[in-house]
Design a protein around this nucleic acid. Sequence first.
DNA 1: GTCTATAAATAGATAGAC
DNA 2: GTCTATCTATTTATAGAC
Lengths: 217, 217
Amino acid sequence: MKRIRSGRPRARVRDAAATRQRLFAAAAAEFAARGFAGASVDRIAAHAGLNKAMIYYHFKSKAALYREIIRDMFEAFGRRVSGVAASAATPADKIREYVDAFAIEAAAHPHFPPIWFREVAEGGAHLDDATVADMALILRSLTAIIDEGVEKKQFSPVNPLLVHAGIVAPVLLYFATAGIRARLERTGVRRVAGIDRAQVVAHVQRVTLGLLEGRIA
Amino acid sequence: MKRIRSGRPRARVRDAAATRQRLFAAAAAEFAARGFAGASVDRIAAHAGLNKAMIYYHFKSKAALYREIIRDMFEAFGRRVSGVAASAATPADKIREYVDAFAIEAAAHPHFPPIWFREVAEGGAHLDDATVADMALILRSLTAIIDEGVEKKQFSPVNPLLVHAGIVAPVLLYFATAGIRARLERTGVRRVAGIDRAQVVAHVQRVTLGLLEGRIA
DNA sequence: GTCTATAAATAGATAGAC
DNA sequence: GTCTATCTATTTATAGAC
């Protein structure tokens, strides 16, 4: 007598969570390369080895999928950065780790820098409130580090937004411009393609600490 | 006897150059707001008070129009910046003017910062060789200023790409984030919306010169 | 959960009248 | 030079079979 399977049907369930993840990864790459409007749900599905309809099954819409990717990115930045602010390190070391945090996340997630640049250009049109809260967390973390340094007479006060801009913009620019820099090098500009990540991070750390430690008139 | 007009027909020629200019301006705004893929030639034409077909008459295609806007932007940056490098000012003043150049152009052309950010994200996909040449000119101008300062024992040598990134990325970020900063301020983050252009420029000038003049260990 | 087929809207681009 | 009308391709999204 053949045993009839009862309960919920399992059929060819390849594991829903894994499918979702494959779609998410394919979408991140597509949005990074072409932007929200330029991305095609057909291409995302094909690149994930799945069908377009799955996107609407696992996510609500193209826009919802995009918002989830944006949220994930700022969450990742925010989580790492607030961990840095809460550690027991000295303020100077926290600044070094703050800089490194963006480089680490950008290196681990190559789609972060292009998506970040596009979202800036878009004026934050796709940011939901949770994401704005994560951005606020990032800035508050830096503010806390600076305040601590000032209180301990190790830093002089500088507007956190200016400090933040001086860190994130150059670091993410480095990651996002690998292709352009290679092309520039081919047209004769030197020392633009060969710079490595450690150099950039060290440079930004040095400049930021020089600023905060008052070594700049 | 009615005089018959001879020669080339003038008809309702509203002035071709002005029409072209209107389309160009409308396209710049549309591309800045929505990106290349997100922009619609219908909207561009409507916003210019003209018909879609005029875009294909005055420009070759949507892509050609976009390339012309990109080229115009980097030409404007390049022209101003190479003028700075060629002046008779001291190296330190040239650095100050180099920083100011980007702020001046960004303030005069509000579509520059978003388009610059998008093009970075795109990996330079729409850059023709003339535009890459303009980008190279910008970097060569900064290199010349730094080299002059080093030769005159006023600067210590620093990789021009790192200097450039530390200038352009924060300055353009400031202009591109006006909307997001206002939203952040509404959610409780302080001192992000109220910063004015002069403050940002002065800050970046100070940091860059601190770096170049060796006041940072 | 995953697929095929298709609806419905919108895109870029061109032909041809004026 | 400027317009209307239209072609064709592509898009997001959904219905329904399995």
